[in-house]
């Protein structure tokens, strides 16, 4: 990963106001917190006359709730008036699998980690914390909070965790909470949750290849 990190939020002055460029390659939650930081930090810069703001999200299609969150952040600066939020038309590669995003850290109570695509979290999701993706969720740590995979309807999404002890699981639009009598033995080791017959089922990790043969690894078969 020898790449130079671009800032998630680039702010440019134009002749008729300010242009906010939001990096499309980073999770939106990361962009939002960077934006919030920038809006809060340099307090004196923002206290000027009313300014028109244009926001460009690159190739990222943002959802209604993401847009609401975005507007909420800007509402903290009364003089910044959002004129437009622009998304580039889906380019040819629009349907490309963006690969798995890897992020480290604890998702604590009250925090929401959102990502468009598949997410590998190196850390815990605590009770009261939420991870939501449009793809699958993999937690290399304890999942004790809420995980929502396939947030836009992808029913093939799965949720896997080193310790799968969620308060609630959601895949696509199916909601489930673990039965009260979940035995420790059932949840020990790596488990994953998936959707079958509109119900969420949990199984040992080594059964995944049977349930999703299309991603099974086979010897002597080069990939990529």
């Amino acid at each position: 990963m020898g790449k130079v990190l671009k800032p998630g939020v680039t702010i440019k002055g134009t002749k008729d106001g300010l242009l906010f460029l939001l990096d499309e390659s980073r999770p939106f939650s990361v962009i939002l917190s960077e934006l919030q930081y920038k809006l809060e930090q340099s307090s004196n810069i923002w206290d000027g006359p009313d300014t028109r703001v244009r926001i460009k999200t690159g190739n990222r299609q943002i959802s209604r709730s993401e847009e609401k969150e975005l507007r909420r952040l800007f509402s903290a600066r009364k003089n910044l008036i959002i004129h437009s939020i622009e998304t580039e038309g889906k380019s040819d590669g629009g349907n490309m699998n963006p690969g798995i995003q890897m992020l480290a850290g604890t998702v604590r109570s009250g925090q929401v980690l959102e990502y468009r695509g598949d997410l590998l979290l190196l850390g815990d999701v605590n009770p009261g914390g939420t991870v939501r993706t449009t793809g699958s969720v993999f937690v290399l740590g304890a999942l004790r909070g809420l995980a929502h995979a396939g947030g836009e309807g992808d029913e093939s999404a799965i949720i896997a965790a080193s310790a799968l002890k969620p308060t609630q699981l959601r895949i696509a639009n199916v909601v489930s909470r673990p039965p009260d009598e979940w035995e420790d033995s059932e949840t020990s080791g790596m488990n994953f949750a998936y959707l079958i017959n509109h119900q969420i089922a949990v199984d040992k990790m080594h059964h995944l290849s049977r349930i999703r043969p299309e991603i099974e690894w086979k010897e002597n078969r080069f990939r990529g």
Partner: peptide, 9 residues
């Protein structure tokens, strides 16, 4: 739970 929230904040 509350402590966790506070740590996040």
């Amino acid at each position: 739970r509350d402590a966790d929230r506070v740590i996040g904040l």
